[in-house]
């Protein structure tokens, strides 16, 4: 099949970007979207043109490198997918596909379709952990975790840190990302000890980094490759409010 591409090109973080049009012939319906971009780049390089910079690594929807906003969908069309799981069979022959980077103040564009998601690392460094040093751990079976809680914690922990939630949210809010980590650790006895401090500092960092606030549209959970639910955002709100009202900071 043949497709037309409309791709955001931007030389570096400071440069003004623009959309560039490409045409690609001989696209196989079984190709993944990333492989299609690979073949576009191969073609561009051979023609002596600048290839399109984009991030990808594991191709198993677990590393969270992909940051492509395709035809109005973060990660492209389809439920519970990262871009590596989008195949060209989802598009029509002759279709124009517009590819943009994540757009958010917290995720500045670095080049073409690459964005800087360091903000997520900073939020994690602010409190997304249990303060325990190597060697201090008690026996894992001495911490009993009910199956329901363990499973629920896992659901939250499945976050791959791709930022599709931010990209999907009209407010560029990082609440789902923060909620997933805060909830995971608050659901487990090991994480409860410092749950309050964690909720307060992670939210403060999130606000500081310029993410918007949650207005409960639910776009994030629809686009999340791991279908992390916004019920975790309710839990984060609960954790944050109770921490705010109880702890004298």
């Amino acid at each position: 099949m043949k497709i037309k591409l409309n791709i955001w090109k931007q030389a570096n973080a400071k440069a003004k970007g623009r959309f560039e049009k490409y045409e690609l012939d001989g696209v196989d319906a079984e190709m993944s979207f990333l492989e299609m971009l690979d073949s576009l780049n191969e073609k561009l390089i051979k023609e002596g043109k600048e290839p399109v910079a984009f991030e990808h690594d594991c191709h198993e929807a677990i590393c969270g490198c992909c940051s492509l906003y395709i035809n109005g969908y973060p990660h492209g069309p389809g439920k519970e997918v990262a871009t590596c799981q989008v195949h060209m069979r989802s598009f029509k022959d002759g279709e124009t596909i517009t590819v943009e980077p994540w757009r958010a103040k917290g995720f500045p564009v670095m080049k073409d379709l690459m964005v800087d998601r360091d903000a997520f690392d900073k939020i994690m460094a602010a409190g997304g952990f249990v303060s325990i040093d190597a060697g201090q751990a008690p026996d894992a079976n001495s911490i009993l975790v009910g199956k329901v809680d363990a499973d629920k914690a896992f659901d939250a922990a499945a976050c791959i840190g791709c930022g599709a939630c931010v990209a999907a949210c009209k407010n560029s809010s990082a609440m789902l990302f923060v909620a997933a980590k805060v909830s995971q650790l608050a659901l487990l006895p090991q994480g409860k000890v410092e749950a309050k401090r964690r909720a307060l500092s992670m939210v403060a960092k999130m606000d500081e980094l310029g993410f918007g606030s949650c207005t409960n549209t639910g776009a994030c959970e629809i686009e999340c490759p791991k279908s992390i639910g916004i019920d975790f955002i309710a839990k984060l709100n609960r954790e944050y409010l109770s921490a705010s009202f109880s702890e004298s900071e």
Partner: peptide, 16 residues
């Protein structure tokens, strides 16, 4: 504040 959180918008409006 929320508008400021996305200084540059998308060309294709969200289909979510």
């Amino acid at each position: 504040k929320n508008v400021k959180a996305r200084p540059k918008g998308y060309k294709v409006t969200t289909k979510t």
